[in-house]
Design a protein around this nucleic acid. Structure first.
Lengths: 159, 159
DNA sequence: CCTCATTTGGTTGTGTGCAACTAAGTTGTG
DNA sequence: CACAACTTAGTTGCACACAACCAAATGAGG
């Protein structure tokens, strides 16, 4: 694991004590921000009766229309272990309908119900409220996304 | 993913459609990075038999010594609903010991066992491995932390 | 037609994370 | 002292996330 042949520049001559608490705080800061987002979304989505992951799934369906579970998972980076119960809850809530494909009976296509389609209107103001809550400029948001993208890429390669 | 190929720094007025998917991707990028960290930590901590949150709790104890559950929760921003089962698992693993205080019998002080204290040595190389996996310079890490701190602050105020 | 690897969802088990509630102990006030 | 308010852990219920495994359907070769 640690014997990577990557010739990346070794990061610096910092005292161990400093370094040792530094990185753990990166992930910690990340999770703190993630949790804070969770709270804001929870508030914003309460009226819609959606959790944040459910909202993401609905976003995908609103944007692309009926999709197989597999594709939704690919978009959200979620596997069936997470998606199956999530989609069942959306189905219980009457927002989606799951239909096994007649072409390929392994595949289940997820459709929006009328109720699910109508929910989109009520969800439209949510993104802007979230953006306002971040208190960040568009430029900062883009820069942050770029940094996070690079970070995720690097971390994924490291596993 | 979708139709937006690259975060080209468009100067000012973004159309609503662009703005509307922007913020959801901030949180999304954040969670992706968080998940990627999770994978790297899972790998790095496998030998120690710790999950990342358990590792954080051990870090607090290694640094500060015996602490009441309340204080650990304050450090990690976790409540008893999360910490109680987590600490019980650490106790089952023989790494900590929970003792109800004689001064204030509401309080439970968490002590490291000898086994828990010894584990620190094996955990020492972990942070450096994580930092290397990020592929980021120390300066970038610090800048990212600053941005995330501001973001979390702003989001917390918004709730 | 038969076999076998692959694809696709699903299920189970473990471990957070959070909200709501309970229980026990402590403290402030009349 | 009596009693209400507060503090601290714990418990329960819900909803992810992920790993490991399972079952049905598909498709390629023989």
């Amino acid at each position: 694991m640690t014997s990577s042949p990557a010739p990346s520049p070794e990061p610096a001559e910092l005292p161990d004590t400093e370094l040792l608490r530094l990185d753990h705080q990166v992930c910690f800061s990340l999770q703190a921000a993630s949790r804070a987002f969770g709270g804001v979304y929870r508030e914003a989505l309460r009226d819609l009766g959606l959790t944040y992951p459910q909202y993401l799934a609905m976003m995908v369906l609103w944007e692309h229309g009926p999709l197989p579970v597999k594709t939704i998972g690919a978009q959200l980076h979620l596997d069936s272990g997470t998606l199956s119960p999530l989609l069942k809850r959306l189905e219980s809530a009457g927002l989606v309908r799951r239909e096994r494909s007649t072409q390929d009976e392994r595949s289940v296509t997820v459709h929006l119900t009328d109720s699910g389609t109508e929910l989109r209107v009520r969800a439209l103001p949510v993104p802007r409220a979230i953006l306002r809550a971040t208190g960040m400029s568009v430029e900062e948001v883009l820069a942050l996304q770029e940094t996070l993208g690079r970070l995720t890429e690097s971390l994924s390669r490291a596993v």
